[in-house]
């Protein structure tokens, strides 16, 4: 059996670690906003709701490169947002932050859709019953909505995590493909396929990807079962 170092180069290992970092931070950062967005879309009525729903879901149907290019423009120093951030000393383009932001935008609709699906299934009369028993709006969210949507939140987080692991198009444009800085697993694999004799290395990274994704699914299943066991 080949030793670990011979299968993965230092660059490969840093790509795997970067991928995990990006996917984990993108998922964690998105949870609060994802929950609030799903709550508003599921429970509130307001003019232009369909429009908001459409914009949030847009990254699902747009080519990732388009999203990446639009992000690149917004964060470049020639435009307002990028200029403002650069004055604050924050640089998004070609940094790990850029990779995280790209993943957040691309995975957000998956997270919101899952949570919203869970919220849509809560019988509204149950919410009214809670309110009629004296629970205010925030109290109702914390005591009823949140516990009843943990399952769909876990599903959403898994989907978002997996989507972030595979993010290629938007990330490559916003964050570039800098080994050790922004080169995640998919970008590293892409590089290997362009180098003569890189097939074995590419394949090893593919297997690493499969392993990480399977682990994520496995954890998802355990959390789901745990939740079901608690409910029965």
């Amino acid at each position: 059996m080949m030793p670990f170092q011979e299968i993965f180069s230092d660059g490969d290992i840093s790509a795997i670690i970067l991928s995990l970092k990006v996917a984990t931070s993108a998922t964690i950062v998105s949870i609060p906003l994802g929950f609030i967005t799903a709550y508003i879309l599921s429970f509130k009525k307001f003019p232009g709701k369909n429009m908001v729903d459409g914009i949030i879901n847009l990254p699902l149907v747009l080519p990732p490169v388009v999203v990446g290019y639009l992000l690149l423009l917004s964060f470049s120093k020639n435009y307002y947002l990028g200029k403002m951030l650069s004055q604050m000393g924050i640089n998004i383009i070609f940094s790990l932050k850029g990779a995280v932001i790209a993943s957040v935008i691309m995975g957000f609709p998956l997270l919101v859709r899952s949570i919203k699906l869970g919220m849509d299934q809560i019988d509204r009369n149950m919410i009214y019953a809670a309110k009629s028993l004296g629970a205010g709006s925030l109290d109702t969210v914390i005591s009823i909505v949140l516990p009843l949507t943990t399952k769909s939140m876990v599903v959403g987080m898994t989907l978002m995590f997996a989507r972030s692991l595979g993010e290629f198009g938007a990330t490559s444009i916003v964050a570039g493909n800098i080994p050790g800085v922004t080169q995640t697993v998919p970008l590293a694999i892409y590089n290997y396929t362009n180098i003569p004799g890189g097939e074995t290395k590419a394949l090893s990274l593919c297997i690493a990807s499969i392993a990480i994704s399977l682990t994520a699914l496995y954890i998802n299943n355990i959390l789901q079962k745990d939740k079901e066991a608690k409910n029965n």
Binding site: A129, K131, G136
Partner: peptide
């Protein structure tokens, strides 16, 4: 608001 009215509702199907 509902939570300040002191009117409890029992719906069909318990909830």
């Amino acid at each position: 608001p509902t939570n300040k009215r002191n009117i409890a509702v029992v719906f069909q199907g318990a909830h």
